[in-house]
Amino acid sequence: MNSSTGIGIEAVDLVKTFGSTRALDGVSFTVPTGSVFGVIGPNGAGKTTIMRALLDLIRLSSGRASLLGTDSRNAGPELRRRIGYLPGELILEGRITGRRLLRHYANISGPVQAGRIDELADRLGLDLDRTVRTLSKGNKQKLGIVQAFMHQPDLLVLDEPTSGLDPLMQQEFLSLVREARDAGQTVFLSSHVISEIQQVADEVAILRDGRIITVSGVEALRDTAIRHLRMSASGIDVADLHDRLFPLAEVGELEVLPTDTGAEATAILTGALSPFVRAIASLTLTDLVVEEPDLEESVLRLYSDANAQPARQGLGR
């Protein structure tokens, strides 16, 4: 790994156009070595384009990218052997077995530790002795995961890696990602499944229309997420409870009603929880339910906000 710089990936003002379409529009970010960087975005946001541009599978219109301290445009065999790549549209066909196909990939990627392929296949429930053409979509995806991880690369670039996997195998895959990070490997993965990113990523970028809306740590993203609230208190009138909660709730999402002994409220809270705790500290509560932060709802709101502006791009650790 690139211990000399501590940077696994550096992307600076990436721009990619296809005719009149601007697929990437000035994307910048930095991924420290030994960390997991996730990219969330709807279909067409530019996730796959970023990955293919980083690997120089498509040439950038402008901007620059480096992987493990090397300009990606100068990526020769030595650098490519240090990378494990799983494309978003994995096409595997043929009459050969999965074992023979992985042996072929191992000749390209470099040495694979004895027993490593069988270990990964066992964990994923993959039969390596079946011919590739007879495998289901999920089992082909498992084969792709094995080829990406088997040579224990310094950098993993994984595009929608859990596509086609059942929930149990999705969790096993996420365990592989955590183990890779713990071993000092850098992982760059994309997904439209926010819960996956939440479970494993150290940093997450939210991508829309080829631009990064925000880059944040998962915990920081949780602090800015929204929470659904239901509460009631005695000895307080509707106006007072409304005034306490209104600054913390999105306009139009707060409802306060009278009860026999006080007032009750339902709301969607935004931001950190501590201001809400301070606001209700002196109340006599008779009921309180605050749901876990809904990251998916928060991210979807960012997607749909027509006035959202790109945030400062970069991790700023």
Rank of each mutant, 00 (worst) to 15 (best):
G63Q: 09
G69H: 12
R82K: 14
G69N: 08
R73L: 12
G144V: 00
D129V: 10
G84L: 08
I96P: 03
Y105N: 08
G138P: 12
G98L: 06
T21N: 13
L102M: 02
L57M: 15
H104A: 12
N107L: 10
N74K: 15
Q152C: 00
K16M: 04
A45Q: 13
A148L: 01
T33L: 01
F37I: 10
E78C: 00
Y105G: 01
A121V: 08
L143Q: 06
D118A: 09
R64E: 15
D118E: 15
Y85V: 11
G34M: 04
L79Y: 12
L54Y: 12
L143C: 05
I96D: 14
G94N: 02
G88P: 11
A23R: 14
G46L: 03
P42T: 11
G144M: 06
G19T: 03
E93Y: 14
L135Y: 13
R64W: 07
I40S: 02
F149H: 04
I83E: 09
S66Y: 07
L101I: 08
E89R: 07
S20D: 15
I91L: 14
E119S: 14
K142M: 06
P87H: 13
D25E: 09
S62T: 12
P42V: 12
E93A: 11
G38T: 09
D122F: 00
G44S: 01
R95M: 07
L135E: 06
I40N: 04
D25Q: 12
R59L: 03
T131L: 02
L143T: 07
E119F: 08
R95I: 13
V36Y: 04
T134Y: 11
L68K: 08
G98D: 08
R99T: 10
K137Q: 07
G63T: 11
R100Q: 13
S35Q: 15
L67R: 11
G34E: 05
V27L: 14
S61Q: 09
S61I: 09
T134D: 11
V112W: 01
L90G: 00
T30C: 07
A114T: 13
I50F: 05
E119N: 06
A65G: 06
S109F: 13
R103A: 15
T49P: 07
I108F: 13
Y105P: 02
H104T: 12
V112K: 04
G34T: 06
T134F: 05
R116V: 00
T134W: 02
V27T: 11
A65W: 06
L90P: 03
G110I: 07
Q152P: 02
T17G: 13
G38Y: 09
S28C: 00
A121W: 10
K142T: 06
L92S: 02
G84C: 00
A106T: 10
G88Q: 14
L67M: 08
V27R: 10
T49R: 03
L54A: 05
